[in-house]
Amino acid sequence: MICIIALVVFGILGIFSATHRKLAWEALDCVIRKTTFRKCRTALDERLRSKISGKVIGKFPKTGAFIYKHFTVFSYAFTLLFIISLIYSGISMYNFAVYGNCNGPEEIPGFCIFDPAGGQTKVTSSETCKIPESGTLKTLDTINITRFPRLDRGSNHTVVFIGCYACPYTRQSYPELQKLMREDVNIVFAHFPTKGMTEYLSAYDYCLYEKDPELLWHFNDALFQEPVESLTNEQRILDIISSFGIDAHEIQECTTMNATQSRVQEQLAALQTLGVYGTPTVFVDGQPLVGPRPFRTYKSLLRKNGN
């Protein structure tokens, strides 16, 4: 049994060292012979048993002897653990490929070997964006999603992008959303203003969308390229709107209207009801993904759902 582990370990080490390459061949031969109920030709298993036990027996005679006597049991246990570990690794790889996170679609905290820095699961923290650090997301049917700006293409797929103009991970994720917009999907955008000084931008979103839905997407493109410091400068926002060839003051007036404020409050309340605890949060056909995931993650989920 130990030969299986030896094969993998020496196989990997054998990439770099000729000595281990020879051992890997021995281990392979051993595995083949063991699977056909024959004795290991080179007695690699016995050598490993003696070497491992021998290392221990000098300092801890009883422990060394125990390992030697029960080596077969240990071998089976380690091989079993190894196989379980392989299965989990496979699942993690699948999760990473599909969800961009080893731990699956649910936002289970934990280390991911394929994303050691955790870059694809990072969200804005309460310190910077004053929102709860974690929570439990509810399903989209708990809120009225039609009350948010929507790019409707009559597709069977819908992506809901909840982001904050000022938050670094939303800004990191936005280019991926732009790629998604080139796919056959309906897009819903919700501004979740994590910084108090950018709350006023939600009203601009609403007013621009009401004037012409296309304007909102141009506005998003512009704001996500704009330096974060400029986002609190309302005059700069008005200049951006003017650059679309429309009357910026008309939009500014709209933002102060009761109906606008009421809608903005309604949207914010809906997002809180949904349990959004970090941005960006993206729902792909109802499947939540928190953190700046790569485009392939969104794409594979869409493919999984039949795109």
Binding site: A43, E46, R47, S50, G54, I57, G58, G64
Partner: peptide, 14 residues
């Protein structure tokens, strides 16, 4: 006790 095992243990431990 396998003599080879014993020899390896003497080497590894001492």
């Amino acid at each position: 006790i396998d003599p080879h095992a014993l020899a390896i243990m003497l080497d590894q431990s001492a």
